[in-house]
Amino acid sequence: MQIISFLFEKHLDKTVLVIAVILSILMLSADDDSQINSARAISSFLLYPVDRASSYFSDMEQLKEENLRLRELAATLHHERERLTQFREERNRLRQLLGFRKDSFFEFIPCEVTARSSNIFHHSVTVDRGKGSGIKVGMAVVGYRGLVGRVVQVFGSSSRVLLLNNKSMSVSCLDKRSRVVGMLNWERGNLFRLDFIGREEDVLQGDTLITSGFGKILPKGFPVGTVFQVAEEKTELSMRVSVVCMTELNTLEELFIVVGGRDWDSEDIFNRLDIVKDPAR
């Protein structure tokens, strides 16, 4: 009792200070993470509304900055586009002088995927554009990053698109760097194989493959995939070129149907394709 009286009556301030210091040291020396986690939970509970309000304003600042950057980019791209348009016209003039066909440029119709096939070897999707939008069989379909397939069936207001990851689909591709041509075939998942590549041909890991435009079914120049492995085949005559597709084909949502770049009405190949029986049907 005397000690308590001594501590809490005569030296109350020092006693309280010692208690506060001991409490602080105990908190500091606690190696149990649960205490810290509890503290974090309390502080986040207290700060949640303020954090929300604060992040709203900081987001606004970020949006303003981003908007400014995008305006600058848009202005730069606008000038760049003007310059490239002039180059295009000049190129067309020169091609005409040399007797080449006049080059035309692609037009895209945006569409949304409305259904997917359930067959694991026959991947296709249905999109919400059909004859009413001018879609024809054979038209190429691209995603944001590159080619995803081509239209194989057209209905009134929808179309079926055969995807690249389909056993019945081969795409003639060109190595963007070395211009080596090969035939792209699906293997599994998002992996493809580039066939008919001789062992002396110049294909390297990291090369981008684009559509070759051969056969006039798919337009030339759309990115398709990236070479991720090059190995010699056992026969030693050809190389095994593994390719990963540019677009994740299992998560397609928005696509673009390529309607420009060709005079579709006069190209009878696509009309003929209309009547060719779809092998997957």
Partner: peptide, 14 residues
């Protein structure tokens, strides 16, 4: 204040 920076719980209290 320590609740706001829970890495050193007790530091600012001390």
């Amino acid at each position: 204040q320590d609740l706001g920076n829970a890495s050193f719980l007790g530091m600012n209290a001390l």
